[in-house]
Simulated assay, not measured.
Amino acid sequence: MSMLSFKGFSRDISTSTVIAGFVTVLVGFTSSAAIVFQAAQALNASPVEIGSWMLALGLGMGLTCILLSLRYRVPVVTAWSTPGAAMLITTAAGVPMPEAIGAFLVSAVLIIVAGFSGWFERMINRIPISIASGMLAGVLLRFGLDVFMAMKTQFVLTFAMFCVYLIMRRFLPRYAVVAALALGILIAALQGLLQVDTIRLQLAQPVWTTPQFSLGSIIGVALPLFVVTMASQNVPGVAVMRASGYSVPISPLIGWTGAATLVLAPFGAFALNLAAITAAICMGREAHEDASKRYVAAVAAGGFYILIGLFGATVGAVFAAFPKELVLAIAGLALLGTIGNGLATALMHEQEREPALITFLVTASGVTLFGIGSAFWGLVAGALAMAILCRRE
Protein backbone atom coordinates (compact mmCIF):
# COMPACT_ATOMS: atom_id res chain seq x y z
CA MET A 1 0.00 0.00 0.00
CA SER A 2 1.41 3.35 -1.01
CA MET A 3 2.02 6.19 1.43
CA LEU A 4 -0.83 8.14 -0.18
CA SER A 5 -3.31 5.29 0.24
CA PHE A 6 -2.12 4.74 3.80
CA LYS A 7 -2.86 8.39 4.62
CA GLY A 8 -6.31 7.97 3.09
CA PHE A 9 -6.92 4.88 5.21
CA SER A 10 -5.72 6.60 8.39
CA ARG A 11 -8.18 9.44 7.73
CA ASP A 12 -11.06 7.03 7.13
CA ILE A 13 -10.56 4.92 10.27
CA SER A 14 -12.96 5.58 13.15
CA THR A 15 -14.20 3.97 16.35
CA SER A 16 -17.45 2.87 14.72
CA THR A 17 -15.65 1.05 11.88
CA VAL A 18 -13.34 -0.79 14.28
CA ILE A 19 -16.30 -1.80 16.47
CA ALA A 20 -18.19 -2.96 13.37
CA GLY A 21 -15.19 -5.11 12.48
CA PHE A 22 -15.11 -6.56 15.99
CA VAL A 23 -18.85 -7.31 15.95
CA THR A 24 -18.42 -8.97 12.56
CA VAL A 25 -15.82 -11.35 13.95
CA LEU A 26 -17.74 -11.84 17.20
CA VAL A 27 -20.90 -12.89 15.35
CA GLY A 28 -19.07 -14.98 12.77
CA PHE A 29 -16.96 -16.86 15.30
CA THR A 30 -19.59 -17.49 17.97
CA SER A 31 -22.20 -18.62 15.44
CA SER A 32 -20.16 -21.26 13.63
CA ALA A 33 -16.76 -21.99 15.21
CA ALA A 34 -18.18 -25.05 16.97
CA ILE A 35 -19.13 -26.50 13.57
CA VAL A 36 -15.56 -26.05 12.32
CA PHE A 37 -14.24 -27.79 15.45
CA GLN A 38 -16.64 -30.70 14.84
CA ALA A 39 -15.56 -30.95 11.20
CA ALA A 40 -11.92 -31.21 12.24
CA GLN A 41 -12.78 -33.79 14.88
CA ALA A 42 -14.71 -35.84 12.27
CA LEU A 43 -11.36 -36.18 10.48
CA ASN A 44 -9.74 -37.28 13.77
CA ALA A 45 -7.75 -34.07 14.07
CA SER A 46 -5.67 -33.69 17.23
CA PRO A 47 -5.96 -30.55 19.39
CA VAL A 48 -2.76 -29.23 17.78
CA GLU A 49 -4.20 -29.87 14.31
CA ILE A 50 -7.44 -28.10 15.27
CA GLY A 51 -5.34 -25.13 16.34
CA SER A 52 -3.60 -25.28 12.96
CA TRP A 53 -7.00 -25.24 11.22
CA MET A 54 -7.98 -22.10 13.10
CA LEU A 55 -4.59 -20.53 12.34
CA ALA A 56 -4.92 -21.21 8.61
CA LEU A 57 -8.55 -20.07 8.45
CA GLY A 58 -7.88 -16.96 10.53
CA LEU A 59 -4.91 -15.93 8.40
CA GLY A 60 -6.81 -16.67 5.19
CA MET A 61 -9.88 -14.67 6.19
CA GLY A 62 -7.80 -11.87 7.68
CA LEU A 63 -5.47 -11.35 4.73
CA THR A 64 -8.23 -11.58 2.11
CA CYS A 65 -10.42 -9.13 4.06
CA ILE A 66 -7.58 -6.63 4.42
CA LEU A 67 -5.99 -6.87 0.98
CA LEU A 68 -9.19 -7.04 -1.09
CA SER A 69 -10.88 -4.25 0.88
CA LEU A 70 -7.86 -1.98 0.49
CA ARG A 71 -7.52 -2.89 -3.19
CA TYR A 72 -11.13 -2.05 -4.13
CA ARG A 73 -11.96 0.43 -1.32
CA VAL A 74 -15.21 -1.42 -0.57
CA PRO A 75 -15.96 -3.68 2.42
CA VAL A 76 -14.97 -7.15 1.23
CA VAL A 77 -15.57 -9.63 4.06
CA THR A 78 -14.59 -13.26 3.69
CA ALA A 79 -15.42 -16.24 5.89
CA TRP A 80 -14.94 -19.95 6.22
CA SER A 81 -17.62 -22.05 4.55
CA THR A 82 -19.98 -22.89 7.41
CA PRO A 83 -22.20 -25.14 5.22
CA GLY A 84 -19.01 -26.74 3.96
CA ALA A 85 -17.88 -27.48 7.51
CA ALA A 86 -21.32 -28.92 8.35
CA MET A 87 -21.08 -31.13 5.26
CA LEU A 88 -17.63 -32.37 6.27
CA ILE A 89 -18.99 -33.59 9.62
CA THR A 90 -21.02 -36.25 7.81
CA THR A 91 -19.49 -36.81 4.37
CA ALA A 92 -15.83 -36.72 5.44
CA ALA A 93 -16.20 -38.87 8.54
CA GLY A 94 -13.72 -41.73 8.27
CA VAL A 95 -11.78 -40.13 5.40
CA PRO A 96 -8.03 -40.02 6.18
CA MET A 97 -6.78 -36.50 6.84
CA PRO A 98 -4.32 -36.49 3.89
CA GLU A 99 -7.13 -37.41 1.47
CA ALA A 100 -9.38 -34.73 2.99
CA ILE A 101 -6.61 -32.16 2.46
CA GLY A 102 -6.33 -33.33 -1.14
CA ALA A 103 -10.07 -32.81 -1.54
CA PHE A 104 -9.73 -29.28 -0.11
CA LEU A 105 -7.10 -28.54 -2.78
CA VAL A 106 -9.30 -29.85 -5.60
CA SER A 107 -12.24 -27.75 -4.36
CA ALA A 108 -9.96 -24.69 -4.18
CA VAL A 109 -8.84 -25.20 -7.78
CA LEU A 110 -12.48 -25.41 -8.92
CA ILE A 111 -13.24 -22.14 -7.07
CA ILE A 112 -10.23 -20.47 -8.72
CA VAL A 113 -11.43 -21.56 -12.17
CA ALA A 114 -15.01 -20.47 -11.44
CA GLY A 115 -13.75 -17.08 -10.30
CA PHE A 116 -10.99 -16.05 -12.66
CA SER A 117 -12.73 -17.53 -15.74
CA GLY A 118 -15.60 -15.09 -15.24
CA TRP A 119 -18.44 -17.60 -15.63
CA PHE A 120 -19.60 -17.18 -12.02
CA GLU A 121 -19.80 -13.39 -12.41
CA ARG A 122 -21.74 -13.73 -15.66
CA MET A 123 -24.26 -15.93 -13.88
CA ILE A 124 -24.58 -13.70 -10.81
CA ASN A 125 -25.07 -10.56 -12.91
CA ARG A 126 -28.44 -11.89 -14.03
CA ILE A 127 -29.94 -11.60 -10.52
CA PRO A 128 -32.23 -8.50 -10.26
CA ILE A 129 -31.48 -6.11 -7.39
CA SER A 130 -35.00 -6.57 -5.95
CA ILE A 131 -34.46 -10.34 -5.70
CA ALA A 132 -31.00 -9.87 -4.18
CA SER A 133 -32.40 -7.42 -1.62
CA GLY A 134 -35.24 -9.78 -0.71
CA MET A 135 -32.70 -12.54 -0.15
CA LEU A 136 -30.57 -10.24 2.00
CA ALA A 137 -33.53 -9.27 4.20
CA GLY A 138 -34.55 -12.92 4.52
CA VAL A 139 -31.07 -14.04 5.55
CA LEU A 140 -30.86 -11.35 8.22
CA LEU A 141 -34.44 -11.53 9.53
CA ARG A 142 -33.69 -14.01 12.29
CA PHE A 143 -30.96 -11.74 13.63
CA GLY A 144 -33.44 -8.89 13.99
CA LEU A 145 -35.92 -11.19 15.73
CA ASP A 146 -33.21 -12.52 18.05
CA VAL A 147 -32.88 -9.08 19.70
CA PHE A 148 -36.35 -9.46 21.13
CA MET A 149 -36.19 -13.23 21.64
CA ALA A 150 -33.15 -12.66 23.86
CA MET A 151 -35.30 -10.51 26.14
CA LYS A 152 -37.06 -13.69 27.29
CA THR A 153 -34.00 -14.88 29.18
CA GLN A 154 -31.99 -11.69 29.82
CA PHE A 155 -34.51 -8.85 29.80
CA VAL A 156 -32.49 -6.25 31.71
CA LEU A 157 -29.36 -6.77 29.62
CA THR A 158 -30.97 -6.79 26.18
CA PHE A 159 -33.66 -4.16 26.87
CA ALA A 160 -31.05 -1.74 28.19
CA MET A 161 -28.94 -2.31 25.07
CA PHE A 162 -32.01 -1.75 22.89
CA CYS A 163 -32.89 1.51 24.66
CA VAL A 164 -29.39 2.96 24.49
CA TYR A 165 -29.25 1.99 20.81
CA LEU A 166 -32.44 3.97 20.10
CA ILE A 167 -31.22 6.99 22.07
CA MET A 168 -27.87 7.01 20.29
CA ARG A 169 -29.56 6.56 16.91
CA ARG A 170 -31.42 9.78 17.69
CA PHE A 171 -28.42 11.88 18.78
CA LEU A 172 -25.15 10.16 17.75
CA PRO A 173 -26.11 7.50 15.18
CA ARG A 174 -22.55 6.51 14.28
CA TYR A 175 -21.92 5.29 17.85
CA ALA A 176 -25.24 3.56 18.49
CA VAL A 177 -23.84 0.03 18.22
CA VAL A 178 -20.66 1.03 20.09
CA ALA A 179 -22.70 2.34 23.03
CA ALA A 180 -24.99 -0.70 23.05
CA LEU A 181 -22.02 -3.07 23.11
CA ALA A 182 -20.24 -1.14 25.86
CA LEU A 183 -23.38 -1.05 28.02
CA GLY A 184 -24.01 -4.74 27.39
CA ILE A 185 -20.51 -5.70 28.52
CA LEU A 186 -20.85 -3.50 31.61
CA ILE A 187 -24.20 -5.00 32.63
CA ALA A 188 -22.97 -8.54 31.91
CA ALA A 189 -19.93 -7.89 34.13
CA LEU A 190 -22.09 -6.50 36.94
CA GLN A 191 -24.40 -9.51 36.72
CA GLY A 192 -21.50 -11.94 36.74
CA LEU A 193 -22.28 -13.22 33.23
CA LEU A 194 -18.77 -12.74 31.79
CA GLN A 195 -16.81 -16.01 31.98
CA VAL A 196 -13.37 -14.40 31.93
CA ASP A 197 -11.86 -17.09 34.14
CA THR A 198 -12.03 -19.57 31.23
CA ILE A 199 -9.74 -17.51 28.99
CA ARG A 200 -6.39 -19.19 28.32
CA LEU A 201 -4.51 -17.76 25.34
CA GLN A 202 -1.85 -19.82 23.60
CA LEU A 203 -0.24 -19.36 20.19
CA ALA A 204 -1.30 -21.89 17.55
CA GLN A 205 1.25 -24.02 15.71
CA PRO A 206 1.00 -24.67 11.95
CA VAL A 207 0.78 -28.37 11.11
CA TRP A 208 1.53 -29.36 7.52
CA THR A 209 -0.36 -32.36 6.13
CA THR A 210 0.91 -33.73 2.82
CA PRO A 211 -2.14 -34.15 0.58
CA GLN A 212 -3.18 -37.40 -1.02
CA PHE A 213 -5.71 -37.75 -3.80
CA SER A 214 -8.30 -40.45 -4.36
CA LEU A 215 -11.33 -40.69 -6.62
CA GLY A 216 -13.57 -41.35 -3.64
CA SER A 217 -12.53 -38.22 -1.74
CA ILE A 218 -12.75 -36.06 -4.87
CA ILE A 219 -16.29 -37.21 -5.66
CA GLY A 220 -17.48 -37.53 -2.06
CA VAL A 221 -15.77 -34.49 -0.49
CA ALA A 222 -14.26 -32.08 -3.03
CA LEU A 223 -17.22 -31.73 -5.41
CA PRO A 224 -19.89 -31.34 -2.67
CA LEU A 225 -17.65 -28.86 -0.83
CA PHE A 226 -17.26 -26.80 -4.01
CA VAL A 227 -20.99 -26.82 -4.82
CA VAL A 228 -22.10 -25.99 -1.28
CA THR A 229 -19.52 -23.20 -0.92
CA MET A 230 -20.47 -21.56 -4.23
CA ALA A 231 -24.25 -21.92 -3.85
CA SER A 232 -24.70 -21.36 -0.11
CA GLN A 233 -21.90 -18.85 0.50
CA ASN A 234 -20.58 -17.07 -2.59
CA VAL A 235 -23.95 -16.49 -4.30
CA PRO A 236 -25.49 -14.85 -1.18
CA GLY A 237 -22.20 -13.05 -0.51
CA VAL A 238 -22.28 -11.36 -3.91
CA ALA A 239 -26.00 -10.62 -3.55
CA VAL A 240 -25.35 -8.88 -0.22
CA MET A 241 -22.70 -6.64 -1.81
CA ARG A 242 -25.01 -5.75 -4.70
CA ALA A 243 -27.98 -5.15 -2.40
CA SER A 244 -25.81 -2.88 -0.23
CA GLY A 245 -24.99 -0.72 -3.25
CA TYR A 246 -21.38 -1.81 -3.83
CA SER A 247 -20.15 -2.47 -7.36
CA VAL A 248 -16.89 -4.37 -7.56
CA PRO A 249 -15.48 -6.96 -10.00
CA ILE A 250 -16.68 -10.30 -8.64
CA SER A 251 -14.39 -12.64 -10.59
CA PRO A 252 -11.14 -11.65 -8.85
CA LEU A 253 -12.81 -11.75 -5.43
CA ILE A 254 -13.93 -15.35 -5.94
CA GLY A 255 -10.64 -16.27 -7.57
CA TRP A 256 -8.51 -14.90 -4.76
CA THR A 257 -10.54 -16.67 -2.05
CA GLY A 258 -9.88 -19.89 -3.94
CA ALA A 259 -6.17 -19.04 -4.23
CA ALA A 260 -5.94 -18.36 -0.49
CA THR A 261 -7.62 -21.71 0.18
CA LEU A 262 -5.18 -23.45 -2.16
CA VAL A 263 -2.15 -22.06 -0.29
CA LEU A 264 -3.50 -22.70 3.21
CA ALA A 265 -5.39 -25.98 2.69
CA PRO A 266 -2.46 -28.20 3.78
CA PHE A 267 -2.66 -26.47 7.17
CA GLY A 268 -6.44 -26.95 7.49
CA ALA A 269 -8.14 -24.12 5.56
CA PHE A 270 -10.88 -26.26 4.00
CA ALA A 271 -12.78 -23.47 2.15
CA LEU A 272 -12.76 -19.66 2.14
CA ASN A 273 -15.49 -17.62 0.48
CA LEU A 274 -17.31 -14.29 0.49
CA ALA A 275 -19.32 -13.71 3.67
CA ALA A 276 -23.00 -12.78 3.65
CA ILE A 277 -24.39 -12.22 7.14
CA THR A 278 -21.21 -10.86 8.70
CA ALA A 279 -20.48 -8.79 5.59
CA ALA A 280 -23.78 -6.99 6.07
CA ILE A 281 -22.53 -5.69 9.43
CA CYS A 282 -19.59 -3.95 7.76
CA MET A 283 -21.78 -2.64 4.93
CA GLY A 284 -24.50 -1.08 7.08
CA ARG A 285 -24.93 2.49 8.29
CA GLU A 286 -23.82 1.50 11.79
CA ALA A 287 -20.29 0.89 10.49
CA HIS A 288 -20.12 4.45 9.10
CA GLU A 289 -22.63 6.96 7.81
CA ASP A 290 -20.39 7.47 4.75
CA ALA A 291 -20.64 4.33 2.60
CA SER A 292 -17.26 5.06 1.00
CA LYS A 293 -15.51 4.63 4.37
CA ARG A 294 -17.08 1.34 5.43
CA TYR A 295 -14.24 -0.63 3.85
CA VAL A 296 -12.29 0.20 7.02
CA ALA A 297 -14.67 -2.02 8.98
CA ALA A 298 -13.75 -4.98 6.77
CA VAL A 299 -10.05 -4.19 7.22
CA ALA A 300 -10.58 -4.12 11.00
CA ALA A 301 -12.42 -7.45 10.81
CA GLY A 302 -9.43 -8.86 8.95
CA GLY A 303 -7.13 -7.73 11.75
CA PHE A 304 -9.30 -9.44 14.36
CA TYR A 305 -9.44 -12.62 12.25
CA ILE A 306 -5.64 -12.71 12.13
CA LEU A 307 -5.55 -12.43 15.93
CA ILE A 308 -7.97 -15.37 16.12
CA GLY A 309 -5.72 -17.35 13.83
CA LEU A 310 -2.57 -16.64 15.79
CA PHE A 311 -4.14 -17.81 19.03
CA GLY A 312 -5.90 -20.76 17.40
CA ALA A 313 -8.70 -22.66 19.04
CA THR A 314 -7.99 -21.30 22.51
CA VAL A 315 -9.20 -17.85 21.47
CA GLY A 316 -12.67 -19.33 21.41
CA ALA A 317 -12.71 -18.82 25.15
CA VAL A 318 -12.60 -15.04 24.61
CA PHE A 319 -15.80 -15.13 22.59
CA ALA A 320 -17.37 -17.75 24.84
CA ALA A 321 -16.91 -15.33 27.74
CA PHE A 322 -19.78 -13.20 26.40
CA PRO A 323 -23.30 -14.34 27.33
CA LYS A 324 -25.29 -15.66 24.38
CA GLU A 325 -27.96 -12.98 24.74
CA LEU A 326 -25.40 -10.18 24.44
CA VAL A 327 -24.10 -11.62 21.16
CA LEU A 328 -27.64 -12.05 19.78
CA ALA A 329 -28.63 -8.53 20.77
CA ILE A 330 -25.57 -6.76 19.37
CA ALA A 331 -25.78 -8.70 16.09
CA GLY A 332 -29.45 -7.85 15.63
CA LEU A 333 -29.00 -4.18 16.49
CA ALA A 334 -26.05 -3.88 14.12
CA LEU A 335 -28.17 -5.31 11.30
CA LEU A 336 -31.45 -3.43 11.82
CA GLY A 337 -30.60 -0.75 9.27
CA THR A 338 -29.48 -3.30 6.70
CA ILE A 339 -32.68 -5.34 7.12
CA GLY A 340 -34.77 -2.20 6.64
CA ASN A 341 -32.84 -1.10 3.56
CA GLY A 342 -33.10 -4.59 2.08
CA LEU A 343 -36.87 -4.69 2.51
CA ALA A 344 -37.29 -1.16 1.15
CA THR A 345 -35.27 -1.96 -1.99
CA ALA A 346 -36.94 -5.35 -2.48
CA LEU A 347 -40.46 -3.89 -2.40
CA MET A 348 -39.73 -0.61 -4.19
CA HIS A 349 -40.97 -1.58 -7.66
CA GLU A 350 -44.55 -2.84 -7.76
CA GLN A 351 -43.97 -5.13 -10.75
CA GLU A 352 -41.18 -6.99 -8.93
CA ARG A 353 -42.70 -6.82 -5.46
CA GLU A 354 -44.24 -10.29 -5.36
CA PRO A 355 -41.16 -12.17 -6.64
CA ALA A 356 -39.03 -10.23 -4.14
CA LEU A 357 -41.45 -11.09 -1.34
CA ILE A 358 -41.33 -14.77 -2.31
CA THR A 359 -37.53 -14.61 -2.23
CA PHE A 360 -37.69 -13.04 1.24
CA LEU A 361 -40.11 -15.64 2.61
CA VAL A 362 -38.29 -18.68 1.21
CA THR A 363 -34.95 -17.39 2.48
CA ALA A 364 -36.35 -16.53 5.92
CA SER A 365 -37.95 -19.99 6.19
CA GLY A 366 -34.54 -21.61 6.58
CA VAL A 367 -35.40 -24.48 4.23
CA THR A 368 -32.45 -26.67 3.19
CA LEU A 369 -32.53 -29.00 0.20
CA PHE A 370 -29.73 -31.29 -1.01
CA GLY A 371 -27.45 -29.75 1.60
CA ILE A 372 -27.83 -26.25 0.12
CA GLY A 373 -29.19 -23.47 2.33
CA SER A 374 -32.28 -21.31 2.04
CA ALA A 375 -30.50 -18.25 0.60
CA PHE A 376 -29.85 -20.08 -2.65
CA TRP A 377 -33.36 -21.52 -2.84
CA GLY A 378 -34.81 -18.09 -2.12
CA LEU A 379 -33.00 -16.76 -5.18
CA VAL A 380 -34.25 -19.72 -7.24
CA ALA A 381 -37.85 -19.21 -6.10
CA GLY A 382 -37.67 -15.47 -6.74
CA ALA A 383 -36.22 -15.97 -10.21
CA LEU A 384 -38.96 -18.49 -11.02
CA ALA A 385 -41.64 -16.08 -9.82
CA MET A 386 -40.03 -13.25 -11.76
CA ALA A 387 -39.98 -15.30 -14.96
CA ILE A 388 -43.66 -16.25 -14.64
CA LEU A 389 -45.17 -13.06 -13.23
CA CYS A 390 -43.16 -10.25 -14.78
CA ARG A 391 -43.54 -9.51 -18.47
CA ARG A 392 -40.51 -8.26 -20.34
CA GLU A 393 -40.80 -4.64 -21.40
Score class of each variant (00 low, 15 high):
145 L>Q: 04
90 T>Y: 11
176 A>V: 09
152 K>H: 13
114 A>F: 11
139 V>F: 06
166 L>D: 08
84 G>V: 02
105 L>G: 09
152 K>G: 11
165 Y>E: 13
97 M>V: 14
107 S>C: 06
168 M>S: 10
107 S>K: 02
111 I>Q: 15
109 V>G: 10
141 L>C: 06
72 Y>M: 09
179 A>E: 06
95 V>R: 00
162 F>D: 08
182 A>C: 11
102 G>I: 00
74 V>I: 07
66 I>L: 04
99 E>K: 05
150 A>E: 01
125 N>M: 12
190 L>Y: 08
65 C>G: 01
101 I>F: 08
120 F>T: 14
108 A>L: 10
121 E>V: 01
115 G>V: 09
84 G>N: 07
166 L>K: 04
132 A>W: 09
96 P>S: 15
82 T>Q: 03
137 A>K: 05
172 L>G: 06
99 E>V: 01
161 M>V: 08
76 V>I: 15
170 R>N: 02
97 M>Y: 13
64 T>C: 05
174 R>E: 15
171 F>Q: 10
122 R>Y: 11
185 I>H: 07
195 Q>V: 14
127 I>Q: 04
130 S>W: 01
168 M>Y: 14
72 Y>I: 10
137 A>G: 09
101 I>P: 08
78 T>D: 02
102 G>Y: 05
68 L>N: 08
159 F>C: 06
76 V>N: 03
175 Y>I: 11
110 L>S: 03
153 T>I: 11
147 V>H: 00
128 P>I: 09
71 R>P: 00
175 Y>T: 12
112 I>A: 11
142 R>F: 13
72 Y>V: 03
65 C>W: 04
183 L>G: 01
186 L>V: 15
194 L>H: 06
177 V>D: 06
113 V>S: 02
93 A>L: 09
66 I>W: 07
120 F>I: 11
169 R>Q: 15
75 P>A: 12
74 V>H: 07
93 A>T: 12
151 M>S: 13
106 V>A: 12
101 I>Q: 02
148 F>L: 04
73 R>H: 04
152 K>A: 13
69 S>C: 00
129 I>L: 15
93 A>I: 05
135 M>V: 08
106 V>L: 12
128 P>F: 10
144 G>R: 10
102 G>V: 06
110 L>P: 03
134 G>S: 01
157 L>Y: 08
103 A>Q: 04
192 G>V: 00
106 V>S: 02
122 R>K: 13
172 L>W: 14
174 R>P: 01
90 T>A: 09
73 R>Q: 12
115 G>W: 07
93 A>V: 09
112 I>Y: 04
150 A>H: 00
127 I>E: 05
129 I>M: 13
152 K>M: 08
150 A>T: 07
162 F>H: 04
117 S>Q: 04
123 M>R: 07
164 V>A: 03
166 L>N: 02
142 R>D: 11
93 A>C: 11
186 L>M: 15
126 R>S: 05
137 A>N: 03
